[in-house]
Amino acid sequence: MQRSLVALLMLAWLILPGLLGSNSTLSLLVFAAINLVQVIGLSLLFGFAGQISLGQAGFYGIGAYVSSLLATRLGVPPALGIIAAALAPAFLAYLIGRPILRLRGYYLAMVTAGTGLILHTVFVEWGGLTGGYSGVAGIPPIAVGSFAFDTPRSMFYLTTGFAILILFLAHRMVKSSYGRAMRTTRESEAAARSVGIDVSRLKTEVFAVSAGLSGIAGALYAHYIGYISPETFTIDTSINLLLALVIGGVGSLWGGAIGAVLLTFLPEWLHQLQNAYGIVFGALVIVLLTIEPDGIVGIVKRLAETWRRRGNQKLDERTV
């Protein structure tokens, strides 16, 4: 049953681009996959290890700039640039992680937001390197050998491939001993430390992983659209990522995935609303979270539970 479901999904994945026909929807799916990579990183950090970050856009930016500049200035192939784009923000997060992850809740939110603001300022002000407000243009697409990922269709396969791989690895991570340690750390650092878990190291490592995933997303984004500027890497983006996670469901990877797709498609669906978009989106968030703190995944779980119970009741009636 599960195997046939996987096979069906694989088939859908293969034929989807052909069915859609329109490049704009395909392009949205590419952005959804890129967002998914990032939101999964945030899900590991916030949902599983319990550490909030409002600075992910800064790491997203580092990944985008590192890979773009390596390609445009030094001619480094983007396929290698992506690796640098993952390592650079991960390294930075690892350096600043120990001191700032001592803080909790609101304080951590503010300090990570501050980190994001500083990085944004660097993107703007270090003009000689980043091009300031005008950004970096002429970024080449990712290429392997002579094949370039320069169409929405090829990028669809590349980015969704990345997204599936990262979703799978993240799933393995949260199911492992390390994942149990993350969840215990979120709920009780005392409990975690009492069994030998070095919580400050664990938090720093997960912070670095989430920054690295944002960096990969940044590089994929840059090589896809070919142009980057600081306005993509603002605190708005960081907040949207967090909202996406919370709307989808904080406590599960599926929640992150659903949230990332919604984050990409909602603005498109609610396009006709124009300026009222912010109001409608905000109201949706408020209503959803008031009903169910675990977001969409929480609602689905609750519905499934109700159906199961109703099914059992019917079964009971029949046996009686």
């Binding site: 005392a190 009492s194 069994v195």
Partner: peptide, 25 residues
């Protein structure tokens, strides 16, 4: 090893997973 006067466990994990956390080291 130790326990706490106000128990510290992970409510998100199953009982088995909670105990497996003990074997972390």
């Amino acid at each position: 090893g130790r326990t706490f006067q106000l128990p510290e466990i992970c409510h998100d994990l199953t009982l088995l997973e909670n105990v497996m956390v003990g074997a972390y080291r």
